[in-house]
Design a protein around this nucleic acid. Sequence first.
DNA 1: TATTGTTATACTCTATAACTATA
DNA 2: TATAGTTATAGAGTATAACAATA
Lengths: 151, 151
Amino acid sequence: MSAKRKVPEIRNPLLNLVGYQLRRASAAMFNDLAVDLVALNLKPTSMSVLIVVGENEGVTQSGLGQLLGIKSANMAPLVAELEARGLMQRLRLDGRSHNLRLTADGRELCRQALDRIAANEVRFLSALQTTNRAALIAALEAIWTLPRKVS
Amino acid sequence: MSAKRKVPEIRNPLLNLVGYQLRRASAAMFNDLAVDLVALNLKPTSMSVLIVVGENEGVTQSGLGQLLGIKSANMAPLVAELEARGLMQRLRLDGRSHNLRLTADGRELCRQALDRIAANEVRFLSALQTTNRAALIAALEAIWTLPRKVS
DNA sequence: TATTGTTATACTCTATAACTATA
DNA sequence: TATAGTTATAGAGTATAACAATA
């Protein structure tokens, strides 16, 4: 029937590359979450800062940056904005470093963000069994925690 | 012994999130590959264009963009540069679309790029068995090919 | 009227460099 | 001398909008 053969049938040789699949999968979950976080006036990056500080009261910006892979030059305005919004406090530690902690508002927003994240995970992973999810996480962590080239 | 307890011991509650692990793993492989491709004067995106055109002679820019998730406005300068470098030809198809195909130089560079990619995959996935690699790819593709929200 | 492609432009994200202040 | 943090800025990467030409 139907001679509607306009479909190009393009082959994608990148599909059997883990690197390519990672990039597409990562972008899909990230963009979906980013849209969801707009309602909380949060970007994924500031959300991650909020969550790590929430779980590590008194952490410094440098420790935070090292953990999340964020340069100090980019961390500064990020933390400044969260403080300006009354979500986080900077307590002087020793004249050159600050201890970070969430305010009550920050903790509340953090809880809401965690709910959005949980929903995001469920949306994309409902097809995956618990065992497979654990295996997936282990494989992914093995990839990015590999000892890097010394060059 | 050693009272060198300066280590902060920061906990990262994001580690059990697939979305977070995806982002870190994706960035690790992507950045590593990008560094490698500098030697070929290619960015990961133009490399992906080169490879898909190589496997689909005569594909149009719109078909290419749809397959790779690249907007036409961003595809234009990308293809223009590859053509200017003598790696690709644009053959007028019907006055408004072009057929793309690689030149001999383009095919040669494509082969070299594929070698770099293969090395990148091996570097990060040597610990993974073939079966697990296939399972990983299947899981990742399931994530980003999910039917999206209709909103 | 919808499609293909182009140009111009804005916005976000991240990287580098230069700097201050402190340990 | 090294570390914590800040500011300014430049470079990717991607997004939107307006447009021309064609089907």
